[in-house]
């Protein structure tokens, strides 16, 4: 089995799955009915994407695993999502800042995967890129409305952005898996997305009257290799409790 491809699929699948779970935590608690619906719509889109990625990974593994065992029976060290998506929701501003940085990256990443030499990967990207295009439009619009909103919304969003900012570096940091996938024409070099990403983020932040956070030199990473913050364990405890305490439970 090509373990690099398997890992690669898990990275995309786990990013979508964990962010979906985070957004689902807002269900019923959004600041307005409209925002509640929008966030849960996004969560469901991401869950759908996660199913496609994880099913493909399970198919490749061929060891009896399926999308559900991958989602519900893996421990935190086996997850390959970036640290950004497992960060707690915090305030609505923190959730939005995290979503905006991720959407901007995801939309670029999926566009690269459209031309992947791996037809199954390109097919998932083709479906997901439309959904993420809308997510990005929505999160960008909200960044502008709240950044350039009231004094209070501006201050909250700037603080949230500053806090989540260091986690974006991991999105653009490659490793051996990325190198192998890039060489095979399946994937892309993460660093090659950075300029386009930064240009877009700058543009939106300027319109939102927000400042680009300063680089503190702290660049947390390790999620892609399975080294997570403690936040992921708690998220998994909640997400996995049912299938773990009632194995094989069915509706």
């Amino acid at each position: 089995m090509n373990t690099a491809r398997h890992d690669y699929l898990l990275r995309f699948g786990d990013n979508a799955l964990i962010l979906s779970q985070r957004l689902a935590e807002w269900c019923g608690k959004g600041p307005a009915l409209e925002e509640d619906m929008a966030l849960t719509n996004t969560a469901l889109d991401l869950l759908g994407q996660a199913r496609l990625w994880l099913s493909l990974a399970a198919e490749q593994a061929g060891d009896g695993a399926d999308e559900d065992t991958l989602a519900y029976l893996r421990d935190d060290r086996a997850f390959r999502n970036v640290l950004l998506v497992e960060q707690p929701n915090g305030s609505y501003a923190s959730t939005l800042a995290r979503q905006f940085l991720f959407d901007a990256w995801s939309s670029l990443a999926l566009r690269r995967l459209l031309v992947s030499s791996d037809a199954a990967i390109a097919a998932i990207a083709e479906k997901a890129v439309k959904e993420v295009g809308y997510h990005l439009r929505r999160s960008s619009d909200l960044m502008v409305r709240l950044g350039d909103g009231t004094e209070r919304s501006h201050a909250l969003l700037q603080a949230a952005l500053d806090q989540v900012w260091p986690y974006h570096h991991e999105l653009f940091t490659g490793d051996a898996v990325d190198t192998e996938m890039t060489a095979a024409g399946i994937g892309f070099d993460p660093a090659s997305l950075r300029d386009d990403w930064l240009a877009y983020v700058r543009e939106v932040l300027a319109e939102a009257t927000l400042s680009l956070p300063k680089d503190s030199g702290w660049r947390p990473k390790g999620g892609k290799q399975g080294l997570h913050s403690e936040h992921l364990s708690k998220l998994l405890a909640e997400m996995q409790v049912l299938p773990r305490s009632h194995p094989g439970a069915r509706w």
Binding site: A32, L33, E34, M37, A38, N41, Y134, R137, R138, D141, L142, R145, G149
Partner: peptide
């Protein structure tokens, strides 16, 4: 009907609330 800060966001919200 729905609430939104401006017209563009109202379109977004309408998409999310009424065209699911």
């Amino acid at each position: 009907s729905l609430h939104a800060p401006d017209a563009a966001m109202a379109i977004n919200n309408a998409r999310d609330v009424y065209t699911r």
